[in-house]
């Protein structure tokens, strides 16, 4: 592989990283919001969210991406490819994140909440000062794990022509007629990114365990 091939590859890698990064950021926050709404158990809204989570978990990312890309224009909505990709990845990861947050909430110690109430904290202060800092720590390993799943699912956006780290290998081999080197190089970059996340997950687990004891 020559310099320009490497250059293309890194551009593809950057596309994967920023689209995944934006989706992760939105997905983590949106997952928290959905978990909070589900804890409120509002009728109909709750059932709709259950349906959303179940559908999002069963729908392949490729199918979801194609669906949004092809279907949005028929409703008069024009999304560019990148927005479509982010939307698909976000819709998918949010569902998983919502479940991670929700289980952290459900397992939160009732005793600690009582101690907060007993010193006169309102529910909002209790949530902000006592629960949320701990929920972040206990949810983090699960959230980071979901981040690596998102990266592993991100090649799905190649199906609508986004030149990500996967698709760029086709572009390169179209010029060099040697498909294997760019594919292996892309594999190495993916492993690097996901390896970092796995390492982060281990750190996060250690911190979470310290809190649990």
């Amino acid at each position: 592989m020559n310099t320009s091939a490497w250059h293309m590859l890194l551009e593809g890698a950057w596309t994967t990283v920023w689209i995944s990064g934006v989706s992760i950021a939105i997905g983590v926050v949106a997952g928290l919001l959905i978990a909070l709404i589900r804890l409120a158990r509002i009728p109909i809204v709750d059932q709709l969210l259950v349906l959303y989570v179940s559908l999002a978990r069963a729908t392949p990312l490729v199918t979801l991406t194609l669906f949004i890309f092809l279907s949005a224009p028929t409703f008069g909505i024009n999304l560019n490819r990148n927005v479509t990709g982010i939307l698909a990845l976000t819709l998918n990861t949010t569902a998983f994140n919502a479940e991670i947050w929700r289980s952290a909430f459900r397992n939160f110690s009732r005793e600690q909440r009582e101690a907060a109430m007993a010193v006169g904290m309102t529910p909002w202060i209790t949530f902000r000062r006592i629960m949320l800092p701990q929920l972040v720590v206990t949810s983090l390993p699960g959230l980071v794990n979901e981040m690596s799943f998102l990266i592993k699912g991100s090649p799905a956006i190649a199906v609508i022509g986004i030149v990500d780290l996967t698709r760029v290998t086709n572009r390169i081999s179209a010029v060099t007629y040697e498909p294997l080197p760019p594919i292996l190089a892309a594999c190495a970059l993916y492993m690097l990114a996901i390896g970092c996340l796995v390492w982060l997950q281990r750190l996060a687990e250690r911190r979470a365990n310290r809190l649990a004891v």
Binding site: Q112, A115, A118, Q134
Partner: peptide
């Protein structure tokens, strides 16, 4: 003051 202390671990 609770039986199980209920300190906030964070």
């Amino acid at each position: 003051v609770f039986q199980s202390f209920n300190l906030w671990p964070h």
